[in-house]
Amino acid sequence: MLHLRIMAPAAMTDEILDDLDSDCAVSGLTVFRGAAVRPPGDLIMAQVAREGANDIVERLRERKVHQQGSIELANVDTWLSRKGFEAEVRTPGSSSDAVVWAQVAQRAYEDTELNWTYLSFLTLATVIASIAIITDSEILTVGAMVLGPEFGAVAALGVALVRKRYMLLQLAIRTLVAGFVAAIGVTILLALVGRGLGWITLDDVIGPRPNTAFIYTPDKWSFIVAVIAGAAGVLSITSAKSLGMAGVFISVTTVPAAGNIALGVVFLNGSTIWGSVAQLFVNVAGMALAGWLTLVLQERLWSRVSVRRARHLVVPRRML
């Protein structure tokens, strides 16, 4: 169940109310006339079955409500309502499977913002990954994978292509490139300090590392895992259930590869650098491709659900 809140000019209110009242996905509807001060107008609130949110938002956008007022959607974690239950039963689709594109796009823009928090987490994760490589520690490698924030920007690549938001595509690419360049740069400086103090040697970088050798040796399994992880990650983002995100972070080796690139640069070891660059590219490409394909499939499936909903809505309108 979603809570829908609309601020709209008074001239639009009656049309919006009629549209919402005739939609089978709406279980509750309230209007406060004259309640909105900026912009001046009315406040409309509704309880909407998650499965029907896309069609409602699209109709509101066609009326340009978002340009003259605002449209807000919020998840309702706990609700008790017979009418709400009946609305979910009437509305085609499953609540957990429903993709609310407005929420997905909003999250994609937030995850691609190149800010201090993103750069800090990515840098810290890359530094931890480099320490994991030096100590050949699987535990630290997993910790670096979980700490890295880059998956949101990778998933945004697919969202941008599917929803044709090319500004989002540019932002996602900028965030990924700038983020990894900054993280690798800081890690290189710290590794140089460690080398100067004698804490890191060439043998630590190119010597036998049975637990972390996969970081710079990409193969077909690297791509397969990235594809599976990318699909699972996008499903976690678009679904009402997001239990699989931690597993996605642990599955891919983007951050560890970045840490290994930094160590390779410090010791000017070409095989380490290019092996890690290949691993990083394979993982990002695999996740981006899988994310895009998953979103395309979801969009096509939900377009069919929208058609079914349209057929359901035609009947009550004719009966009026």
Rank of each mutant, 00 (worst) to 15 (best):
R90G: 06
R33F: 04
L176E: 08
L60W: 05
V193D: 06
A246G: 14
A285H: 10
V248I: 06
V252W: 00
R165H: 14
R309C: 07
A11K: 15
K241G: 04
L235D: 05
A129S: 15
A231K: 03
S27E: 10
A226M: 01
E58F: 08
I134E: 10
I250N: 07
F85Y: 13
I6H: 08
I224K: 04
A229H: 02
S130L: 02
H312Q: 14
T141V: 12
S130G: 15
D203V: 07
I224P: 02
V265I: 15
D136I: 11
S81E: 10
F267C: 07
V266P: 08
A226K: 01
G264I: 03
K220R: 13
V154Q: 08
T201Y: 02
D42P: 07
E299T: 12
A262V: 09
V99G: 09
R174L: 09
A278T: 10
S22C: 07
G259P: 02
R308P: 02
E150Q: 11
T123F: 08
A160M: 11
K164L: 14
V57N: 12
V186I: 15
S94G: 13
S251I: 00
F281V: 15
V127R: 01
L190C: 06
L197I: 04
S137I: 08
A132W: 01
Q103K: 10
Y216R: 13
A35R: 02
M287C: 15
A182R: 00
A129E: 01
V296T: 09
V37G: 08
V315M: 09
A191Q: 02
T294D: 07
R107K: 14
L189W: 10
T187H: 05
K241C: 08
L202E: 13
V65S: 07
R59N: 13
V154A: 12
A262L: 07
M167G: 15
R300F: 11
P9S: 05
I16L: 13
E110V: 11
Y118T: 05
D77Q: 12
E62C: 09
G185F: 05
V100H: 06
E110K: 14
R38F: 07
V186E: 07
V282N: 01
A232H: 00
A172V: 01
M245K: 00
G275C: 08
I128V: 15
V252D: 10
L243G: 12
L43Y: 12
V162F: 08
E138C: 00
S81M: 02
L29Q: 13
G244L: 09
L114Y: 15
I224R: 03
L169Q: 11
G84Y: 05
S120I: 03
A231V: 09
Q170F: 10
T117M: 03
S271M: 07
